[in-house]
Nucleic acid binder design. Structure first.
Length: 197
DNA sequence: GTTCTAGAAC
DNA sequence: GTTCTAGAAC
């Protein structure tokens, strides 16, 4: 089941191939049949291309909303819909498992996306301190917090979190708070919590 | 966001 | 000598 490649379509006499910037990659993923899980008029649900846990999905609006800063009160209903879609897919695919629904305080990839991710963090794609801290510190902002902020302030502003500092924090187990010296040790450590969950 | 790899850390 | 991380990528 190899997927069809289409990278040579710009070869030949036509204008030179101009590669899209990596930060726009989610827009391609949103139309990739291999990644799409569910879809409706408002959102697309895809599998994260580099999942950081056994179950890791992204819920993205079809509307061109770049990031959290672009949100205003008119988007509240959309955010609630995104939340429900995340909840639904994770319960359907990974029913009974612990999971979180949230946004990265500062996302690398364009197009607003909700992470729906189980808390096993059992994945070979989870490699760096930045990965870890982006899902286990306050850098990961619960969807409900975002919605509440939008309702109360009419906008989302997370500057108070000092996001870039959060990513440099010491490695700490998300279950028992035990500090770990490096990523391999952390990954070995969290395996002992799997039975608990 | 990932890949690659130099050089730090062990 | 091997493991691990952090920074460049035109």
């Amino acid at each position: 089941m190899s997927k069809i490649k289409r990278k040579h379509e710009d070869e030949g006499q036509s204008k030179p191939y101009k590669k899209k910037h990596w930060s726009l990659g989610l827009l391609d993923s949103m139309t990739d049949p291999d990644l799409i899980v569910e879809e409706d008029d408002l959102v697309t649900v895809i599998k994260d291309k580099y999942p950081k846990a056994k179950f890791h999905y992204l819920v993205l609006p079809k509307e061109n909303i770049t990031n959290l800063k672009r949100l205003n009160t008119s988007n509240i209903e959309l955010l609630k819909h995104i939340h429900i879609c995340g909840e639904k897919i994770i319960k359907k695919a990974a029913g009974g498992r612990n999971f979180r629904l949230g946004y990265h305080a500062v996302a690398s990839m364009s197009r607003l996306h909700l992470h729906a991710i189980t808390q096993d963090f059992d994945s070979s794609c989870l490699k760096t301190k930045k990965h870890w801290n982006s899902f286990t510190t306050k850098f990961f902002v619960d969807s409900k917090v975002i919605i509440k902020q939008l309702e109360e302030n009419g906008k989302v502003d997370l500057a108070y979190l000092n996001p870039s500092e959060l990513l440099k924090a010491e490695l700490k187990c998300h279950v028992c708070d035990m500090k770990q010296g490096n990523m391999p040790k952390l990954k070995a450590h969290i395996k002992q919590h799997v039975q608990d969950a």
